[in-house]
């Protein structure tokens, strides 16, 4: 217990990084996932194939490898740099990798949502003269989103927990790394371990609860 109190400031600072990563990645992966699914269902075969290929590759690659590629491949080898400050650069490399990874799950979740929207909705949208992307944006996606709020919540919860893999991209600031680092100094401390688990649950449980409530409130009645 003393260990937990002693190292609490470090762990809290680390946990704040997890929260930052979660917020930024949630926004980016929802946007990128929406763009991806739009291409995935587009009438142009080239766009459909490109999106499907991306989703299938990224979704089926272990996250540690995606993050390692982001740091070692994109940054070290290909020279992608977000900042001269190494820790800032590492932060954004994690954001890039984790968002790119999560976006593929968001896209697939949204696609299953699109499948719940009756074909007649798209036909009616086309019949009043909306173009494909207009009808997707105004008619299909709003209904698809509402149908998959709960599963999207699960995707976001998984993403929040996945921020603890950031060290795979060489970013050594978030709480799971701080914990491991602390254990290396002091030996394993069960209170620290439990404290960190509770901290994550303090975020993920409300996300799940909120998603469930929103799903019920915003459900499209047919």
């Amino acid at each position: 217990m003393n260990d937990l109190i002693k190292y609490a400031p470090d762990l809290a600072a680390g946990f704040l990084v997890n929260v930052e990563l979660s917020l930024v990645c949630a926004v980016l992966s929802l946007i990128a996932g929406t763009v991806l699914v739009s291409l995935r269902v587009a009438p142009t075969p080239v766009l459909r194939t490109a999106a499907a290929t991306y989703i299938n590759i990224v979704r089926n690659t272990p996250l540690t490898l995606v993050l390692a590629f982001s740091a070692l491949g994109l940054s070290d080898t290909l020279g992608l740099s977000f900042s001269k400050e190494p820790s800032t650069n590492a932060f954004w490399l994690v954001v890039l990798g984790l968002s790119a990874y999560t976006a593929s799950f968001v896209a697939e979740t949204l696609r299953s949502g699109i499948n719940t929207v009756p074909l007649g909705q798209a036909e009616a949208a086309r019949a009043i003269g909306l173009t494909f992307f207009q009808s997707l944006r105004m008619i299909i996606l709003p209904q698809a989103f509402r149908a998959v709020i709960a599963p999207l919540g699960s995707v976001i919860i998984a993403m929040i927990k996945n921020t603890t893999v950031a060290m795979a991209a060489g970013y050594l600031a978030e709480s799971a790394f701080v914990m491991k680092d602390t254990f290396d100094d002091t030996g394993v401390s069960i209170p620290i371990f439990i404290g960190l688990v509770l901290a994550f649950m303090a975020i993920t449980l409300p996300v799940g609860f909120l998603a469930g409530r929103l799903a019920r409130r915003l459900a499209v009645v047919r």
């Binding site: 036909e123 949208a125 019949a127 003269g129 209904q143």
Partner: peptide
């Protein structure tokens, strides 16, 4: 055949469906 020109044509032809197809949301 497709694209903006087709969308424009459809905007000039109204359609009423058997299953109404009103935008549910």
């Amino acid at each position: 055949a497709e694209g903006k020109a087709l969308a424009r044509l459809r905007s000039e032809v109204g359609m009423v469906f058997q299953s109404f197809n009103l935008f549910s949301h």
